[in-house]
Design a protein around this nucleic acid. Structure first.
Length: 495
RNA sequence: GGUUCCGUCGUCUAGUGGUCUAGGACGUCUGGUUCUCAUCCAGAAAAUCGCGGGUUCGACUCCCGCCGGAAUCACCA
C-alpha cells in the first residue's frame, strides 16, 4: 500500500466545530492505515480573521480525539515552519517562478475598478471572469514584471482555461469547463498568499500526496489543476468530503446552528472514543453491520471509497446512544478503577468530601444508565447528601398508591422493614438481597410496591439502581436513618 | 443566472444487473429480564429505492430526460 502523507490544515479563526472535525479524522485514518504521515498545518494567511488562541483550541481538539500529528506545531518537523504566516518568503519565491514561466503577473488594478467589471458583467448577464479584463500589465515580459514587482501589488495567475477532467476519491470522475478557470489571486496586497496558492505550494513542499477537504473546494479544483500543471508537479489524491447537515433544514451544520466544538462535548461528558466513532461513521461505513469501532479498528477498516458522497445529517441522539455504549464498554473492559479517572470532573459538588473508593462504588452500580458522564451530577446526589424530604413524593408514587395503604399502614410496613434490616449483622449485597426477598414474603407485598417504598424513602429519586445495590452502597447507617425518618414523618403526618 | 455535485425507511447507512417480496443501526412502539429508571434480550411499525422513459430475459444497480436539494462563482479559507 502506498504511504499516505496528508494533512489537516485548519485556519485559526476559532474553535473547529464538529461539522469540520471529520476533515481531520479521515486523513488521519488514511495516514495511519498506510503507515504514512499526518501533518498539522495552520493556515493563518488571513490576518483579519485570525483569532488569538484558536490554534491552541484546534490542537486541543485533535489531542482529545487522539489524532496525534507527526509534523506541525509543538512537534516540529523537517518541512516546517507549519504556520503559513511564517512561510511568506517561500510563497513569494514560488509566485516568482510562475512569473518567470509567463504564467503570472503583477496586477495594479484597484478594487473599485474590479468591482466595476463585476457590475458590468452582471448587467450584461455574462459570467464574470477576471481574465476577460486582464490588464495590459499582464502582457509585460517576465523580466520586467520581476524587476518592478514589489509587495503591495497582488500577483495573479494567468489562467489556461480548457476542459479538465480529474478523479476524486469520493466523488469519482469529475470534469469542468473553462468557464470556472480564472486569473486567481496568488499573492495578496499584504504580501501573503491566498489559500488557493499557499496550499498548492505547501502540499508539494511537504510531500503531501493526499488532500481531503470539504466539497466546497470542488468548484475551485480546476484552478488548482491548472496550477499543478503550470508548476509541472504531480497533483495529490483529491478527496472531497460532503458536508454534515444541520439537524433541521438542508444547510450544512455551522456554528449558527449551535454546532458545538468537539471539546465542548468533553465538558458535557462525552467520551473521545464515542465522538471519534460517531463522527467517523457519519457518512462512512465499511460495508459490515458493525457500529462500534475503536480508533484502531477505524484505522484498520477505513477506506476512502466507502465515504458517502452526499451530506449526512448530524444526529446528537445517536451520538449520545453511542456514548452510552462506550461508557459501558470501557467500564467493563477497563474496570471501575481505571474508568473512574475519567469521571473526576463530573460528580456533584456534594460528592467532594467523599473518598475515591466510595465514588467508585457508586460508579460501578450506576454506570450502565449513563448517557454522558455529566449524568452523574443529576443521578447520584442521594449517595452524597440527604435528599430533599418530600412526603408527597412518597404518597404520590404510582406504585405506592397501588398498595391502597394508609399512611399509618405504610409506616408500619416500614417498621417491619427497618426491624429486619436493622438486625442485619452483615450488610452486603448477598445479605441484602436475601433479606429483601424475605421481606417480600413476610409482608406479602408485590416487589413493585415494597421496593418502591424503600427506594423512595432512601433516595427520593425517580429511579435508582437495583435496590440491594443501592442500599449496600449507601451503607447501613445512612439507609436506616433515612428509612426511620420517613417512617416517623408518616406517623406525624397522620395525626 | 452560469458551473459542478448529490438523491434507498423520520435519521445514519448496506446494496457495484438476478441471492432485494431491499439488510443493519439510531429513534418510535410492544413484550421479557420475580421493583423503579436505564441497560440487556425478543418482536413490530417504518423506504412504491426522487419522478418518467429506455437498454436487458431481468434494474435500486447501466443510459437519457425531468424534478428536488446542495455547493461555488472574493486580495476567505
Amino acid at each position: 500500500m502506498k504511504k499516505i502523507i496528508t494533512r489537516f490544515a485548519p485556519s485559526p479563526t476559532g474553535y473547529i466545530h464538529i461539522g469540520n472535525v471529520r476533515s481531520a479524522i479521515y486523513p488521519y485514518l488514511a495516514a495511519r492505515q498506510s503507515g504514512g504521515r499526518y501533518i498539522l498545518r495552520i493556515e493563518d494567511t488571513d490576518q483579519a480573521r485570525f483569532v488569538e488562541g484558536a490554534t491552541e483550541l484546534i490542537e486541543d481538539t485533535l489531542k482529545w480525539l487522539g489524532l496525534e500529528w507527526d509534523e506541525g506545531p509543538e512537534v516540529g518537523g523537517k518541512n516546517g515552519p507549519y504556520f503559513q504566516s511564517e512561510r511568506k518568503a517561500i510563497y513569494q519565491e514560488w509566485a516568482k517562478k510562475l512569473i518567470e514561466k509567463g504564467r503570472a503577473y503583477a496586477d495594479p488594478t484597484d478594487s473599485e475598478t474590479i468591482q466595476r467589471y463585476r457590475d458590468e458583467d452582471s448587467a450584461k448577464k455574462i459570467p464574470y471572469l477576471y481574465r476577460n479584463h486582464r490588464p495590459k500589465e499582464a502582457e509585460k515580459s517576465p523580466e520586467e514584471i520581476l524587476k518592478t514587482w514589489q509587495e503591495g501589488t497582488p500577483i495573479r495567475f494567468k489562467a489556461d482555461p480548457k476542459p479538465r477532467k480529474w478523479h476524486d476519491e469520493v466523488m469519482g470522475d469529475l470534469h469542468a469547463g473553462p468557464e470556472v478557470q480564472d486569473d486567481i489571486i496568488l499573492i495578496k496586497k499584504d504580501g501573503l498568499p491566498t489559500y488557493n496558492f499557499a496550499h498548492i505550494v505547501d502540499d508539494f513542499l511537504m510531500n503531501i500526496n493526499m488532500v481531503a477537504r470539504g466539497v466546497e473546494y470542488l468548484s475551485s479544483t480546476p484552478n488548482y489543476l491548472a496550477l499543478y500543471e503550470a508548476f509541472g508537479i504531480d497533483r495529490p489524491l483529491l478527496v472531497s468530503l460532503p458536508h454534515i447537515l444541520a439537524p433541521q433544514g438542508n444547510k450544512k451544520l455551522g456554528k449558527r446552528d449551535g454546532a458545538k466544538s468537539a471539546t465542548e462535548y468533553r465538558k458535557d461528558g462525552v467520551l473521545p472514543e464515542a465522538m471519534l466513532n460517531y463522527l467517523a461513521c457519519l457518512g462512512w461505513n465499511d460495508g459490515t453491520e458493525q457500529e462500534i469501532y475503536t480508533k484502531e479498528e477505524l484505522i484498520k477498516h477505513f477506506s476512502l471509497d466507502h465515504i458517502q458522497n452526499s451530506g449526512a445529517r448530524y444526529d446528537e441522539v445517536k451520538l449520545l446512544w453511542m456514548n452510552g455504549q462506550w461508557i459501558r464498554r470501557l467500564m467493563e473492559e477497563e474496570g471501575a478503577d481505571k474508568f473512574y479517572v475519567r469521571t473526576l470532573d463530573f460528580w456533584p459538588k456534594s460528592a467532594e468530601p467523599f473518598d475515591d473508593a466510595y465514588k467508585k462504588q457508586v460508579l460501578s452500580i450506576i454506570y450502565d444508565r449513563l448517557k454522558t458522564l455529566s449524568d452523574l451530577r443529576a443521578m447520584t446526589g442521594y449517595f452524597f447528601e440527604d435528599p430533599i424530604f418530600d412526603i408527597e413524593q412518597i404518597l404520590g408514587n404510582k406504585f405506592i398508591k397501588k398498595t391502597g395503604l394508609s399512611e399509618k399502614e405504610l409506616a408500619s410496613l416500614l417498621e417491619t422493614v427497618t426491624e429486619k434490616l436493622g438486625s442485619l449483622d452483615s450488610w452486603n449485597e448477598e445479605t441484602l438481597k436475601a433479606t429483601l426477598n424475605e421481606l417480600l414474603e413476610q409482608t406479602g407485598r408485590k416487589p413493585a410496591e415494597l421496593f418502591s417504598l424503600i427506594r423512595i424513602s432512601v433516595s427520593f429519586a425517580p429511579f435508582s439502581p437495583a435496590l440491594d445495590l443501592t442500599l449496600n452502597v449507601l451503607g447501613k447507617n445512612v439507609a436506616m436513618a433515612r428509612l426511620n425518618k420517613v417512617k416517623e414523618a408518616l406517623l406525624l403526618d397522620q395525626q
